[in-house]
Amino acid sequence: MITLENVLFKWHAKQPEPTINITKLDIDQGEHVFLHGPSGCGKSTLLSLLAGVTVPTQGNIELLGKAINQLSNSKRDRFRADHIGYIFQNFNLLPYLSPIENVTLGCQFSKQRQKNALKNSATIAAEASRLLSALGLNDNLQHQAVAQLSIGQQQRVAAARAFIGSPEIIIADEPTSALDTQNRQAFVKLLFEQASAANSTLIFVSHDETLQTLFTRSISLVELQGGTDATH
């Protein structure tokens, strides 16, 4: 359901070595994948490609059976809004919205995800509240100012925003780097629960290899990159 074939990506045409050079990558629906690698190995670029923010210089990227590198900009935007939930390293919550409003924002630009959200709850706000509770954020915290929440609590809001409307793909870009070790494992388990409940594919990026054992599949980007690296 995620397929990369001969994907080459360069930021500039004159760049000697491509930033991304992946011959083949397949990820199945519902898989929980741990993607790791040192800084600068192209993780962020790969995520941009997977989210359809950037398009490969060469090669094909198929998401849910659609070659997204062939879609127009606006169609890629729509595809992303409908099918991809993104959790950022630094959460990126809007400070002037409450946790509930931040979460509902996740499905307000997509009819598809609104429809999905309404399958679980009567209103999207109720669905946001349900997700926040499931991720361990109490009712009384759900209407507070985002800035008053702890880092762990903010991360739960960011996760709920990615999960609302059950997108098929959840991309988490180093979401635990701001958490301490104990909270990291607990947070990852919460992500698993939600991803399994929605049958979403979870692509979890981290350089913290202690989390690797929790995942069914682990991909080293360094090994994935280029023919030579993979043979090592």
Binding site: S74, D77, A81, N92, L93, L94, L105, Q108, F109
Partner: peptide, 16 residues
Amino acid sequence: RRELAILRSVGARPWH
């Protein structure tokens, strides 16, 4: 720009 990028990441299109 950060705020606008966040909106983009949750699915807002440039015309939004």
